[in-house]
Every structure is written in structure tokens, then in C-alpha cells.
Design a protein around this nucleic acid. Sequence first.
DNA 1: TTGGATGCAAAAGATTTGCACTCCC
DNA 2: GGGAGTGCAAATCTTTTGCATCCAA
Lengths: 136, 136
Amino acid sequence: MTQMKEEGLKMTPQRMAVFKLLRDKKTHPSAEMIYSELKHEYPTMSVATVYNTLSTLAEAGLIQELSIDPNKKRFDPCTAYHHHFFCKVCRNVFDIADDPSFSMDIVKDEEKKIEGHQVEEIQVNLKGVCRDCRKV
Amino acid sequence: MTQMKEEGLKMTPQRMAVFKLLRDKKTHPSAEMIYSELKHEYPTMSVATVYNTLSTLAEAGLIQELSIDPNKKRFDPCTAYHHHFFCKVCRNVFDIADDPSFSMDIVKDEEKKIEGHQVEEIQVNLKGVCRDCRKV
DNA sequence: TTGGATGCAAAAGATTTGCACTCCC
DNA sequence: GGGAGTGCAAATCTTTTGCATCCAA
């Protein structure tokens, strides 16, 4: 939580609540999901604040914005490199460990260029049906 | 273009126009971009038709829906496996060849499961600043 | 002929914006 | 005290939906 202070961000209750909720959940929630959960504890909190906070935290590199759910942005408190799996049925996002038998060399070198483009970020998105939904 | 017929889809002028435009452009346009371009040639075409057509073509496997632009869905007429690069400055999407030094074994096996999840689709998304925007 | 496709407008869902007020540093 | 952060509502942008009409097969 002190990482926020290190980044020069003001430690407001709202920001800490968003950051904490993101860390406590493994669901990679969207802004709306975060808002729904927090408004019980912080009845005056507004959606705008949630959106503001999420982009501030993402810019500071404390969280990661995922482009895996086709309908909305999802957020991950873990910025270490790993893959994600999106279930087309339940729409949950799962973390996938960066197994060596299933990784890319490129990711080891953040400064690498590809076909002349400066790569700053890599997201590996798997989609399908998750283990829970397959059973149904 | 005959692929549409093979998939049992009606060959309407609107569908053919969307499919053709997608093939002629390398920009991986969004629905809105496609609509803007086509409404000159087909003044009565509606956005709904563009959206309908895109999801129909995607379901039939003739095009691919990309989750790389955080703000909107983008579409790719090439369904062969390859990576994509998204420029945060100009917001263009570039194709990246699936170089062996930069690929994943997993993609060779469409039926593979990962951590119990059934994988149907893989998208590798690179983000950063494209070669053209770096020069500016 | 006829069921699927289209066009239109309204609605829904996600995100942003403007601005006055608040409160962290 | 000052400026960043917040709350609220309205606006914007993307996508979906309902329904009457149309047309490819």
C-alpha cells in the first residue's frame, strides 16, 4: 500500500479501498464490479472516482489494465508477467502461470523491438471454456 | 468470397461489402470505421447491419474478433495464427508474423488444455509505440 | 414464397467530462 | 492554503435490441 506514496500519489480512502479490493479478489474485476462492491462500504463513492483511480494506478504501474474481456476493461493487481484465460461462458478471467513450456522469449527483454515497433507491454490472452463451466 | 456460401450464409451485398473492405484494408478496423467507409457506397446501410455482419462472419470463422484495442472491438480477415501490435499513440493495429524465435508451442495444438481450461483461441497482444510514431 | 437479413430508432452498457466542493499533504 | 482528488450528473461512445420491411435462395 505504501507503493502509492512512493509513486507520489495521495493516499485517499477511496484509492486505498480500490487497490485493496483488487488485491483481495482474484477475479480481475471491471470498474463497475469494483464500484458495486465498494459502494456498500463507501456509499458516497462515485463511479468516476473508480475510473479515475484505476487509470491513475495503471499509469503508476501499480496495477495492469487487461484487454481480454471483449466488453469491458478488467484490472489485475499483479504486474509480474503471466498469461490470462477468459471463459466465454462465465466471463471470468483466470491467471495462468508463465510455464516455460508455454512462454515467449520476447517477454524476457522489455526493451525489445519487433518489426521496428517499440514493445512496452505484452498480453497473452487465452479464451475458451474454463474447467468449471466444462463440467456443466 | 465463396466461403460465405460454403458456410451457409446468404450472400447479401452488405455482407460482401463488409467482408471485402476488411480484406482490402490492413488496418483491422472497428465496426464504426467500417460503417463510415461503407455508407458512402451504401447510403442506406445501417450500423446494426455492420455489427450483425461482423458477428456472423466471426461465428462462421471467416474473420477474427480482436481484443487488443481497449476501447472497441477490432476485426481481422486473416484467421491464420499470428500476433498483433497495438500502437498507443496512433491506435493502429499491426500484424506481427509468428516468428519461431517468438512463438508459443501451445498454439500448435488447438485442442490443448491449460490448467484444466479448454483453450479455443489464443491472442498475443503487443502494445507500445509503432515505428512510425517513434519517429515523430 | 419465406425465413433470414436489413434499416431505423431507441435502449443499454461502458467510460469520460465539467465543475463545484472536499480534504490530503 | 493550495492543488490534487472526489462526487454528481450529463454527455459520449460502443454495441445491442425490437420490430416492420425487404430480398436472396
